[in-house]
Each structure stands twice: as C-alpha cells, then as structure tokens.
Design a protein around this nucleic acid. Structure first.
Lengths: 340, 340
DNA sequence: GCGGTTTGTGGAAACGGTTCATTGAAGGCG
DNA sequence: CGCCTTCAATGAACCGTTTCCACAAACCGC
C-alpha cells in the first residue's frame, strides 16, 4: 500500500510487471501473431492480476477511430422511433460500436449543434433525421460532414445514404381503401411537409383521389401537426365544422391518441359515426374498441438496415454512390372503417 | 491545393497560421483570462478561416474527463422507460455531457460487459438498472466501479445512489382499492422479484391483504412475466381456472396489452366480467374502452433526478453518503373496476 | 532608476495507447 | 563456418490536447 495513489493501471505498468516492452503488451492486446505463446500467457496473466483495463480514449487518439456512432432523432420516447433506434443500437453493439443517442426536438439549431458535437467527438458515423430537408444550412452541414451519415425517413439530400418507409404508397393505399368504401370527405392529418414522410403522404393521398377523378378539398389536409395536443385541437375543429369529414386518416407518427380523444369528446363513435385509419400500427390501434385499421412496416428492419448501411460506409469508404432503401408499407384492415 | 492530403486541422495548424504558440491557442479555446484581446481575436479569426474543430478525444485524453455518461437499461422501446431516458438525456446534454445508450435485455452478462465497455471508454458516470439485485457478481461490479453509478428503480446495493418509484405504496393502494370494492380473488402480475419493483409490489399487495386480515392465495401471484407473450399466456391460464380471479392487477411495466388481449380472447368484458388495474399509466390505459384505472408517477422527473444526482457525484466526488430518491405513486381511478 | 511584482506568451512535458524501424537471436544453407 | 533470412521483442516517435514552468516585458512604489 504505502503511498497508494491509486493511479489507474496502464499498459506501461503491465509491461513493467511482466518484464516486457510496452509494444509487446500492445501486440498481445491486439492479438498480433508475432508474440510467443509463452510471453503472451505471461502478459495475459499480468493483465488479470493487475486488473488492467484498456483505455479506449488513448486508443482512439492514436488510431483516429472511436468505434462510436451517434444517432440524432426527433424524439425517442415515441414508440415507433424507439423500436428502430433499439434495433440499430443492437446492430452497432454487436459490431463492437458504442451508441450515442440524442433527441433533436425537431429543431434546426439543435440538429446543427449536435452535428458539431458528434464531429468534435470524432464519432465514426451518424444516423439521423432532420427537421427540414429544404434548409440549405442543414443540407450543407449534412452533405459535407466529416463522417458518413445515414438519413432515416429523409430522402432529399441526394448525396447521402438513406433508409425510409414507402409512405407515399402507404398513404395511397389507405386513401384508396377509404375511397372504395364510399368516403369522399377524408381528413388527412400529417406533420411538417418539409420532411419526407408528410410530403409523400400528402402526395399519396392526392394521387389516390386524382386517379379516381375525385377532387381534393384542401381544407381537409391539416399539416404541421407535431404534438398530440395540436392534433387533438385540429381534429376537434374538423369535427365541429358544418360538413364534417366522414373519415380521418391520422397519417403522422404517434398521431392516433389525439383523434381518438377528439372523437370521444365530440360524443362520436369510431367505426360508426366516423371512420379512422392510423398511419402507424401500435398496441393502441390494435387493442382499441373497435380495433383501428392501420399502416405498418418493419421498424426493426429499418433500424437494422440503417445501422448496416452505416457500418458498411465506415468500413468501405465514401466513394461508392449513395444508397437508398425504401421499405414497403402495408395496410392492416381492422374494424374502424365502415362503408358509407 | 497541390498535395492536398486533407489532414484534419489541429491546434498546431491554428497556432502556426496565427503565429502564436499552441498553448496560447488552447488558452483562447478555454476562455483563459490571460490572453490579450488583440491575440484572442486574431486566433479566433484563424480558427474560423481554417475551420478548426476541437478534438474531444485528445481533450479527454489529457484531462481524464470524457464529458460522457452512459445509460444501460432493460429495454428502451418500452414507453415508460423511454420517457425517463429522454428526460435524462436532455438534462445531461444541457450540462454539456454526451449520452451513451445501451439496452441490457435484462441479461446479467450483457450488464457486466456493458459496465466494462463504459469503464474502458472512461465515461464520467453511469445510469443503469440491473436484472438481479441479489447477484454477487453484479453487486460487486456496480459497487466497485471506477465511475459513479446511479441505479434506476433498484435499491438493494446500499452503497450506490438510486432513484426509484414507491412501488410498494402504489401496489398497496391499488390492492386496497380492489379489496374495498369487495374483490377477494385478485391476480397479481409482476416481473422478476429479484429486482426492486416486483419485489415491492408483491410486498404492497400482501400487506394490503394482511392489514384487512384477508389471506392471500399464492396461486394468484404470477411473477417472472417479462414479455407480453408470457403475460398473455399467464393471464389466459388464470382466466381458464375453475375459480377465476375477479380482478387483475397487472403491476409490471408495459404489462397491460397481454391481459387485455387475454380478456378479449376469453370473451369477457373489462369492467363488467372482470376488473383490471394497470401498474403503469399510458395512452393505452387512458383510451381503452372502458378507460383503465392505473398507477402513475412522474417519469420525466425520475430521469431528471437521476441525471442531476449523477452530475452532482461527478462534480463533487464519491465521499458523501449515498442518496436515495423515491418518487410518490398515485392511483388514477377510471372505469375498469366494478364493485362486487 | 532600481528591486520586486504582475502579466502575457512561448515551449515542452505529459496523457496512454499503436506502430515502425531496429536489433539480437535463431535457423537454414552452401 | 560464415552468410542470409526469418522471427521476436525492444524502444521511441507519434496522435492533439492541456498545463506547468520559464522568461521577458511592463508596471509599481519608493
């Protein structure tokens, strides 16, 4: 004991204790072939007895690789997001990477400042969404970042890899279903059209109408619905109009509870007085009375794909052309829509 | 351009370009007072023109502080967990810390290996749960870790800070409520009693019975229910028994969907044929028909408290005695329980 | 105008790994 | 036996910061 300064034990301490050079210890740690079995074992024993723990900071410093990836996403307490974040984290971890997570609250300045933080931390790659695909600052920061980036559910930046769901096809399918049941006043609830999902949902919705020669009432399209409260208020307002919609397609993510509350508040019954389709499947949709018809895609696969894409970029460089994966979306028909 | 090796620009490049010493640049970066206004501005301009980005790795290397904290939790795609993880992340970020997230899948070996990873990465602190509070390996690893740790909803390791909810009081309240309605066969569904929440829920449930002199049928306590499928199966089995329970207290986290499915499958109606209390409030509970009576506590506050506690430890050392915060749990009465 | 203090800047030594050139020993071959 | 090659291990340089010591200039009071 004695002075017992309790310094953390370094590779140099190990080298001294095992009576070898530091380089040799390093080679043992990295499974380099040119170490005698005898010395290897001696060093390994010393590592155990001293309780040596390799310092990842020093390692990153020298190798210029941190084995860390970062993920910046609007809000990971939304189950739909959490499930692909989880899949991504698992993929990264099994590849030996550590996962940094941050939420952007869909704010441009947060997104930019996180990109800077990640860059200063020298993460090996980034997985993210952005609030506005048309913003030049964001586009510039993302396409000129020092590390590879994979976008989630964003497609506008042509030079960057992305993984998304085919929201346009999904929206079209949902809308066609409602139209086929005879609905003509279908409210569409979406988020910000400056981002891919809402934009393509509006496209799909419009397309479905146009293909059947049905005109779209622009008042029925309500966008920029970014909170449950906003969605609730907007739905309530729609239900209060003289010619209220006969169906609601709540297309945005995590957007079901607002309309359900509003419908209940208005004293209406889902599946009788009004039809509802949810843009995302969930326990809430499945277990509601009546169960809610919903769109669905494999979110775990989305996270896995994104992670694998990013790992591939990290390993094989940025020269190959950007890749784009678009996952299929399907409609799960339940009991919340009735024919008119 | 010329050779254009595109090395990242370092503090040395800045020093050379601004014609000062590296130490001076460092002092400008760290807002050290003893730099002339004139030199400070010259250096700052150089930093901007060269596009210098401070290397956090090198900084950590030298200062032995990473400004990173890690969080290891069973499963962050469970909304109840995600909401306090989110609050914690926000707190850490506003304090200048970067947040590492990993899920343990409630497995001891994952927990141990994550602790090692965090330790190798020299994170400044850890926020976590563990699968088994009685496991000596885990207890040892946690109480002798190199960095401060705050436990979430775990209380057995006396030497470590913790933040939890008062599950025992909550369970007692829920059980007393059901007993007061005349229920005598109340099924209790919980997770693993080796962890604090389930253990204290069983305590609270038992206590409520004992205080009224009512005996507990051990067959009605179903523990180790760690997945939705297991909970579904167990509930279905209970409902199939000759003397089926008149009430179900689904106490575990994210445990409501299983019983709801089982009740529906059995052709029963919640609030009429059987009463249900959920151990966690959620959209699903609130929007169900009928709305489900549930326990509730402030999860964001839980995450915030944990983060603040950890930051305090990081700043002020580990000599002060361990702190323990236990948040109150309250019962939100809705329409899912009827008097017998 | 001179000793002593204060202030601003330069330069170098750390931090803990990895890697590369170097060396010494051992082995193979004519 | 001497030369060439191969193989193991050594020791030092390096990664990009921070911090500490040294030093010179400026300032102070007497």
């Amino acid at each position: 004991m004695g002075k017992a300064t309790k310094r953390t034990v370094t590779i140099r301490d190990v080298a001294a204790a095992a009576d070898v050079a530091v380089g040799t210890v390093s080679r043992v740690l990295n499974d380099h072939h040119s170490v005698t079995k005898q010395i290897r074992e001696r060093v390994q024993k010393t590592i155990l007895t001293l309780g040596y723990q390799r310092n990842a900071i020093a390692q990153s410093m020298r190798s210029a690789r941190t084995k860390m990836v970062a993920c910046a996403i609007r809000d990971f307490d939304i189950p739909a997001f959490a499930s692909y974040v989880k899949a991504a984290e698992a993929t990264f971890r099994s590849a030996g990477y550590t996962f940094i997570l941050a939420s952007t609250a869909n704010a441009k300045d947060v997104e930019l400042s996180l990109l800077q933080t990640f860059s200063q931390r020298r993460v090996d790659g980034v997985m993210m969404t952005m609030s506005d695909e048309t913003d030049p600052d964001l586009v510039n920061a993302i396409s000129h970042a020092a590390m590879p980036i994979v976008l989630i559910d964003r497609e506008l930046v042509q030079s960057v890899d992305s993984v998304s769901a085919d929201h346009r096809a999904g929206a079209r399918q949902a809308t066609e279903y409602l139209l086929s049941l005879g609905h003509r006043r279908i409210a569409l609830l979406v988020g910000d059209p400056k981002a891919y999902p809402s934009r393509s949902r509006i496209d799909g919705y419009t397309e479905a109408h146009r293909c059947l020669g049905i005109s779209v009432d622009p008042h029925l399209i309500r966008d920029r619905l970014l909170s449950n409260e906003a969605t609730f208020r907007e739905t309530a307002a729609l239900l209060g109009r003289s010619e209220r919609p006969t169906a609601i397609y709540a297309a945005g993510v995590d957007m079901l509870s607002g309309p359900l509350r509003a419908v209940r508040t208005a004293g209406l019954v889902v599946g009788q007085d009004i039809s509802i389709i949810s843009g995302n499947d969930s326990d809430l949709a499945e277990l509601n009375t009546p169960p809610i018809t919903a769109l669905r895609w494999d979110r775990s696969e989305m996270g896995r794909h994104a992670a694998e894409m990013l790992l591939d970029r990290i390993d094989h460089g940025r020269q190959s052309p950007p890749r784009r994966i678009r996952l299929p979306v399907s409609l799960v028909v339940r009991g919340s829509c009735r024919p008119l």
